[in-house]
């Protein structure tokens, strides 16, 4: 199973955490689309501890036990 964690405003699309069934060839985009999360609302994707912007991460293939964090644009400090 793949663990998908959602944060702040993206939680309206499925709460804090969703378990997603793995299948071969799955990329991050498939998961986001199947969860019906508008891609434009996502800014940073962390996949198995590697982080980058949506456009750089969206077509990465996931593994059977991948952990994905999805964040909207945010900053603070």
């Amino acid at each position: 199973m793949i663990t998908v964690k959602l944060y702040s405003s993206i939680r309206k699309y499925g709460g804090k955490e969703i378990m997603f069934e793995y299948r071969k060839g799955l990329v991050v985009r498939d998961i986001i689309e199947e969860l019906k999360i508008p891609i434009k609302e996502i800014s940073i994707i962390i996949l198995n501890h590697y982080d980058n912007t949506t456009d750089k991460m969206i077509d990465r293939e996931v593994k059977e036990s991948s952990l994905i964090h999805l964040f909207p644009p945010m900053a603070g400090g």
Binding site: S8, S43, I46, D51, H69, F71, M74, A75, G76
Partner: peptide
């Protein structure tokens, strides 16, 4: 801007906690 127009007004600066922790 989604950061200054939504993220910070809704959650304050502590919106960062989970992102910093996840890294």
């Amino acid at each position: 801007n989604p950061v200054t127009g939504e993220g910070l007004p809704t959650y304050g600066t502590a919106v960062l906690v989970n992102a910093i922790n996840a890294n």
